[in-house]
Design a protein around this nucleic acid. Structure first.
Lengths: 162, 162
DNA sequence: CTAAACGCTGACATCGATGTCAAGGGCAAG
DNA sequence: CTTGCCCTTGACATCGATGTCAGCGTTTAG
């Protein structure tokens, strides 16, 4: 199969497929006229690459993880294993970050819902001006809920080392 | 407190703090000579921004979620709520992506471990050359495990619309 | 008063995956 | 042979958060 079909079957653009090859993630055989030829194996390979890329891995990292173009070697496997472990923990903490953000978002949603409900109850909910409150809320208990939410977020502070 | 202290307390660089302000995520009062002044509220605000940024939200999105610089308005709250719901589902699917990648990685780790174990058992494990096998493995059962793993990954195909 | 440390603005650089365009070659159907 | 579609390589553009530097003002400690 040529690049167009692989592209259609994987959803990766032709451009991306050539890029993957350039980065050493994919190897293609070439037809006599220089066109790339792929087989079923490549479809699966590309799918895996997409999974990893979607997870925010760099192509550099993926290239370490998937010794695709060379013969297996014990050395390579050992180094790959190390990279995999490292990457696994990176993924885990990324998941934690996302979960934390989602939780924070849930609190904001909650507070926002309460705010709207209060407005429905009472069209002039609070004092005139909350200059820079973290989230505009008309009720002290909502403000308190927000404080608790933030405390939960900040329990595990982001830390200076980005 | 001035920008240096806020930076030290949040771990965000001065550059980033100015950027947040420029993007409308942060409002500062200014001293008579034009220096930015912050209070405790801002520390929490920046922490929240960091949580969201770490989750891959764009500053544009965050600006929609946190109506920080204006007085609360019902309209704004409604629109923010819509954006929040959208963003929440984006976060959820991002978490799913990461989890899928981690699972795939776990399988690779497993296969790799088996490969190394085999090598230890038997220093010439398999045929001489597996030109483009998805993962270099010397045992048919490992190959089978890998197939199953990939099937699991591909159960929910990435789809053409990136 | 002076020097050091800090702050301000503005500009330019970076990284990585991808889009897009140009100029040309390959191949199949009419 | 021509037309149309697919392929090739190479180059340049993009986006967003951040780094970094320059040139200049402010604040603070000695």
């Amino acid at each position: 199969m040529r690049i167009g079909e692989l592209s259609a079957r994987t959803g990766a653009s032709r451009r991306s497929l050539r890029y993957y090859e350039q980065q050493g993630l994919l190897v293609s055989t070439r037809s006599s006229s220089g066109q790339r030829c792929y087989d079923e194996e490549h479809v699966r390979r590309v799918a895996l690459i997409q999974v990893f890329l979607a997870a925010g891995m760099s192509s550099r990292t993926i290239a370490q993880l998937i010794p695709c173009m060379t013969r297996p070697s014990t050395d390579r496997a050992r180094r790959a294993l190390a990279a995999m472990d490292e990457e696994r923990s990176r993924l885990s903490s990324a998941i934690d970050s996302l979960a934390a953000a989602r939780e924070a978002l849930d609190h904001l949603i909650d507070v926002n819902r309460k705010f709207l409900a209060n407005v429905a109850d009472d069209s002039a909910p609070d004092g005139p001006d909350r200059h820079s409150g973290l989230f505009p809320v008309g009720r002290p208990d909502a403000a308190r809920a927000q404080q608790i939410a933030l405390a939960a977020i900040l329990r595990d502070p982001p830390g200076p080392g980005r």
